[in-house]
């Protein structure tokens, strides 16, 4: 759906055409659900939250202002509802690995070998599976920023607004999150190890 089409649909819903809203659900459900899924780690919770997001979007549609993308508005709502949910559930990190945090030193990052080229489908599938597992094992603040950027395609500015942090912090946190992710993928053997860049020291992450 183009931005113009989206606006037209929103206008129709605002005028009382409830059924038009379904097109907005269909257009955005996948990314909203995946964001919730990666944040909660549970399919049922993610479905409940996704449903809540769309119903809140519907009832609060007058609050949506066209200067932001409708999808991003939904992602922000998803994020906030997930944060509330996680706080209530006190979800604990699933991994005990050490991570580099946003302000700490750079860790010993094993740089993947350049020979890695996921040319064939089997390798691509392997990468997808490893990536999904790796994202799940990241500490929450790294997992959420990776999902926002890589899976929902939010801009730095949109992420900054959603998380209530500066764009500078978005840049550095995303960088650290990616380094952690590469380390995890290395540990699964997804990327060949070359063992270079042993420059920093490992620091405990913030879970």
């Amino acid at each position: 759906m183009t931005a113009a089409e989206e606006r037209a649909v929103i206008d129709r819903v605002r005028r009382g055409e409830t059924e038009a809203f379904e097109a907005l659900v269909l257009d955005n459900q996948k990314k909203v659900y995946n964001l919730a899924l990666k944040m909660t780690g549970n399919e049922n919770d993610a479905l409940d939250i996704s449903q809540e997001v769309f119903i809140k979007a519907y009832t609060g549609l007058h609050n949506f202002r066209a200067e932001s993308r409708f999808s991003v508005w939904l992602y922000r709502m998803t994020y906030n509802i997930c944060v509330d949910f996680i706080r209530k559930k006190q979800r604990t990190p699933v991994s005990s690995l050490t991570y580099t945090d946003d302000d700490g030193e750079y860790m010993d990052l094993e740089i993947p070998d350049t020979r890695y080229e996921p040319a064939v489908e089997a390798e691509k599938r392997e990468l997808r599976e490893a990536l999904s597992r790796g994202i799940d094992e990241l500490p929450q603040h790294h997992r959420e920023i990776i999902v926002m950027r890589e899976m929902t395609g939010m801009s730095y500015e949109e992420i900054a607004t959603t998380l209530g942090i500066s764009e500078g912090t978005v840049k550095s946190r995303l960088s650290r999150a990616r380094q952690n992710l590469v380390s995890l993928l290395n540990s699964y053997g997804t990327f060949s190890k070359s063992g270079r860049h042993k420059t920093g020291k490992e620091v405990e992450g913030h879970g």
Binding site: Q29, L131, V182, H197
Partner: peptide
């Protein structure tokens, strides 16, 4: 260069890791 390449591989694969929403989700919302 290898790190950049890894980041790009991740970016490329990430979109494909999105899982499908169960059938009937939108209908349920409506």
């Amino acid at each position: 260069r290898a790190l950049l390449s890894a980041y790009r591989s991740i970016a490329e694969a990430a979109e494909e890791t999105l899982v499908q929403v169960p059938d009937g989700f939108a209908a349920g919302v409506m």
